[in-house]
Design a protein around this nucleic acid. Sequence first.
DNA 1: TTCTAATTGAAAATGATTATCATTACTAGT
DNA 2: ACTAGTAATGATAATCATTTTCAATTAGAA
Lengths: 171, 171
Amino acid sequence: MFEHTSRHNNNDETVLPIPSNNETSYFDESWTEDDLKQIIRKMNLKVTPQRILILQTLHEGRVHITAQELYEKVQKINSDVGFATVYRFLKGMAESRVVTELRMGSMPTRYELTPKKHHDHMTCTACGKIVEFQNKNIEDHQEKVAKQYGFKLTHHVLELYGICTSCQMKK
Amino acid sequence: MFEHTSRHNNNDETVLPIPSNNETSYFDESWTEDDLKQIIRKMNLKVTPQRILILQTLHEGRVHITAQELYEKVQKINSDVGFATVYRFLKGMAESRVVTELRMGSMPTRYELTPKKHHDHMTCTACGKIVEFQNKNIEDHQEKVAKQYGFKLTHHVLELYGICTSCQMKK
DNA sequence: TTCTAATTGAAAATGATTATCATTACTAGT
DNA sequence: ACTAGTAATGATAATCATTTTCAATTAGAA
């Protein structure tokens, strides 16, 4: 399939319907249990074994993951974690901007630990593949538009949709 | 949460997530029955009274409408139209790009007749005001990114979020 | 340790969307 | 205009992700 070791690599791709498990985290550093606890406390939430496990699994696992996938992964490690807890925690983390929700088309919501460096997504509507990209020119022009209307930008959502190379050839 | 504080209806601008009902169509021209039929035929769909009614109601009604709202509106005119038909037809029209799906946050999908001149949205996170804008430079750079990864773009979603002038002055 | 509110898991509920299927009705070809 | 063939329809059930409920458990402050 394809290699992906870091999000700094321009070639990193994510395949959605049949997720490739060789994706690694955006974050090279490993998190100690204390790191995990601190992150949870910063959200004004209590530290529980479930939350530690969920956050750890999220950090170590694939970049774009659904709540369901994360639940199944966590289940294998500790079957005492219910999916309601996974959903609840993910939602809480999204509110605290610790994770970012990705709603691509009508596919189930995917989550990623909010990356330090901003990037946008381009999705293949045929196979669900996601390509991440950064483009300073686009960002610059967005700022120009904002200035033109007197807005002070806080964030943005840019999602490109199209057909990837291999799907173009298939049909 | 933003969901509960963004419903200020400033003026005649679009306000989310519960848009004002005095919104008018993008399209000034009225469509004759023949116009409607032609549009449907162009989608390779058969002309039926239901589809004519749905399309007509969509054209005459508010800009951003949910499938449910459209169904209820159509029901009042002809109760022989089922909501499955409304959903199916909207989905078909979305596929043919006759309408555009708008997924704002986690609210139900809203539909708009695809405007001839493409535009994107810039939303004030304080008051919910929406500004529509066009920027060819951004579009061009999007194409460049797509080309770079071998994608053939079909569409995109660009939403800018920030604070508008008046909200900046308020504090 | 004790207390209390936060958290949990299982299950049920919700809400939007999609599929099923018997019936109806467009429309191309005669 | 007539028919055959197939697309479209509406009522209903099914699906799917997500949210809520609630009784039992647990974290963490006092």
